[in-house]
Simulated assay, not measured.
Amino acid sequence: MKPYVRKEVVIIDEIRAEIGRPLPVPLRKCASVAIVENLFAGKRVEDLSLYGEYGEWLGRLLVENALEALGVGPEEIQSYGKAVVTGLAGEQEHGSALLHIAFDGPVREALRDTLSIIPSTEKAGPAGCSVDVPLHSKRAVKVRTHYDAMEVSVADAPRPDEIMVVLCLTTGSRPFPRVGGLLLDQVKGVDGVS
Rank of each mutant, 00 (worst) to 15 (best):
V141T: 14
N65D: 09
P134V: 07
L167Q: 00
A69D: 05
A157Y: 06
M1K: 10
P22H: 09
L98W: 13
D148S: 12
G73Y: 13
G20N: 07
L184Q: 03
A17Q: 15
P126H: 05
E91P: 00
Y54D: 03
R108I: 06
L183K: 15
E76K: 14
M150L: 15
Q78N: 05
D148Q: 08
C30E: 00
L23A: 04
E122N: 02
G71I: 12
A149G: 06
V5A: 07
T145V: 01
D104W: 02
G81W: 01
P3I: 11
I35H: 02
Y80N: 02
K123M: 13
R44M: 06
A34S: 13
D47V: 08
V193Q: 09
G172K: 04
S130Y: 01
E53C: 07
T121S: 13
S130I: 07
P177A: 11
G20I: 07
E122S: 01
S130A: 14
K7Y: 02
P175Y: 02
L169F: 04
F103K: 01
P24T: 08
A124E: 09
W57I: 06
P24G: 10
S79H: 05
L67C: 08
R144P: 02
T171W: 04
V107T: 07
L182W: 09
I163S: 02
I35Q: 00
V165M: 13
P158A: 05
A97T: 06
Y147N: 09
E56Q: 07
K142S: 06
E91S: 14
M150F: 03
L183T: 14
R108N: 06
L58V: 06
S194W: 10
P177E: 05
L61M: 14
I11E: 07
D104T: 14
V166I: 15
S32L: 10
K7I: 10
Y80H: 06
